[in-house]
Design a protein around this nucleic acid. Sequence first.
DNA 1: CTGAAAGCGCTTACAG
DNA 2: CTGAAAGCGCTTACAG
Lengths: 346, 346
Amino acid sequence: MARIDDVARLAGVSTATVSRALRGLPTVSELTRARVLSAATQLGYVASPSASRLAGGKTRSVAAVVPRLTRWFFATVIEAAQDRLYEAGYDLLLYNLGGREQERRRLFHAAALTHRVDALMLIATPLHDEDFAAVTRLALPGVTVSSGTPVPGWPCVRIDDTAAGRTATEYLLRLGHRRIAHISGDPTDELAFTAHLDRRRGYLDALADAGVPADPSLDVEDEFTVAGGERAAAELLRRHDPPPTAIFAACDEIAMGAMATLRQAGLRVPQDVSVIGIDDHDLAGAVGLTTVAQPATEQGRLAATAILEQELDPRDPAIWEPDGGPPMVLPTRLIIRDSTAPPLAP
Amino acid sequence: MARIDDVARLAGVSTATVSRALRGLPTVSELTRARVLSAATQLGYVASPSASRLAGGKTRSVAAVVPRLTRWFFATVIEAAQDRLYEAGYDLLLYNLGGREQERRRLFHAAALTHRVDALMLIATPLHDEDFAAVTRLALPGVTVSSGTPVPGWPCVRIDDTAAGRTATEYLLRLGHRRIAHISGDPTDELAFTAHLDRRRGYLDALADAGVPADPSLDVEDEFTVAGGERAAAELLRRHDPPPTAIFAACDEIAMGAMATLRQAGLRVPQDVSVIGIDDHDLAGAVGLTTVAQPATEQGRLAATAILEQELDPRDPAIWEPDGGPPMVLPTRLIIRDSTAPPLAP
DNA sequence: CTGAAAGCGCTTACAG
DNA sequence: CTGAAAGCGCTTACAG
């Protein structure tokens, strides 16, 4: 493998000049640059990242942390972020927490991240006190996506979860539903992101505004997966006969799981029970799920862009407020499909 | 940030000894190791990866390449691979091709991968001649997952796609179906992995064995997504009235898309049309999809393990045959749910 | 605009 | 079992 001095020799210049020419620094004459480029091409030279990083002090890498890559929202955000980062010549190191609390501890505390990346992207990753201290100690720039613990100085890309919960619930109310159940995230789940708390608040607010008393037995918690939705819906059916006329699920995966349980119980969606979710999952259209769509790809792209801007000008106060600046809140949108309808007349 | 000489000074040893002690090399006395460890802990020392990589010549990183992270199979494989790699202290650099042919070219040819990783993991990534040459020139160890172009010296983790296609088709035949349609990958899709060719072969073989003549108009191609399945099923309905009594889709996402189209056309699944897929997607159970399950998590974990073994003992011929050894073919399994039934009597 | 030289922070023969 | 020294392959002041 050709090294920088091979290129320097062939081009008849110093290694410093090769370095400058190849990185496009302005202080190189056009003639010299052309000679260097041609020598580099001829030798198939590519600078060693390890050496550049050691000498330059920048890794041009970012660590992206997700609770569970296989959930729709996380895969979509990561995909979009990677695309954007790749365009800019940055590597994305993927860290999947995968439901293991210990994993997270080790990731933030131990060697994993130190000196390894220039920035962090925490997607729906709540930080316990210890984690938070560890992340702060890392002293890296970063961005958070979706809910989770805010980090001072980091921007936050997300939707308005409370408003999304309200939108979903208000739509059900408008259809005439009054016994509206809610399925949200599991508070005992160590990986629980906190979006579900806000989504529930939107649900409760909407009920209150409509003068509908909240019934705690209609509010079930389970994990943010299809299986979680199946279990939670089964629990609702166990508790209530007749069942509630509508279910607002905190995400589409839960909603789809709930639909499966309802159908297996012989209940028709939407005639017997309406179901609405949040996300607009890839499969929401196929199963006819009404949902409050959130722009996951946009969030990933925006988060990556936020990091890149920070990299380009690490301390330009015009870009970065000390508190991370205003959160970048992206719009949601109600998409009405076939899983919702007015309740049957009693 | 503490450097290695800070630790050396505090422990009263040389930097060479610190390096050896911290990496667990055997040639260090227990007493010395303890002193070094305590000094390192006290200073919160973590070795700089850039420096280690430059000096040691190993990056302890692997590049994982997928066509589209948001498809179930790819996200699942990546998640499992990352988990395994992380345990071993390896970083996973994610590269999502995302449907752009140019992207791939740049990735394999240009600077992106050179000197950056110790190994490659190509998931369902077919290599054109040029790409293949570029990958070979990289001269890295690696592993391929699922179909794609075999690389000499690399092991290949996959299922038997032909057998899976045969299993699915034979099940439909056994139920009594004769007009069995097939939906597979789009051959013009630059990212098409080649699994669909084998799956179709299994379909054709099963038909031939049963003495059922293959009808090319029942064989439709589109991309491996829900949208692809929706379009392909619509095309089938356009071509055939009455519709075929069964559809074998090359993956569950296609199958779920097809089910959506059928239902929208007023056809009942399975009474009017049976549908079977391949995968056992997270949502297959929820929508009652009969499928030939493939172990995606296992494939990811196994691929990562294959790379790690190669790393541990790069040239042990007992581990690595010159041709990559026998492919690691994992078992599939028919899961019967509600989307398949005998055809209605005519 | 260009070069000589120091330095980034480790690891690895080599000696003892 | 341990250390002194060279070297990994770049980038960056500093000088000119």
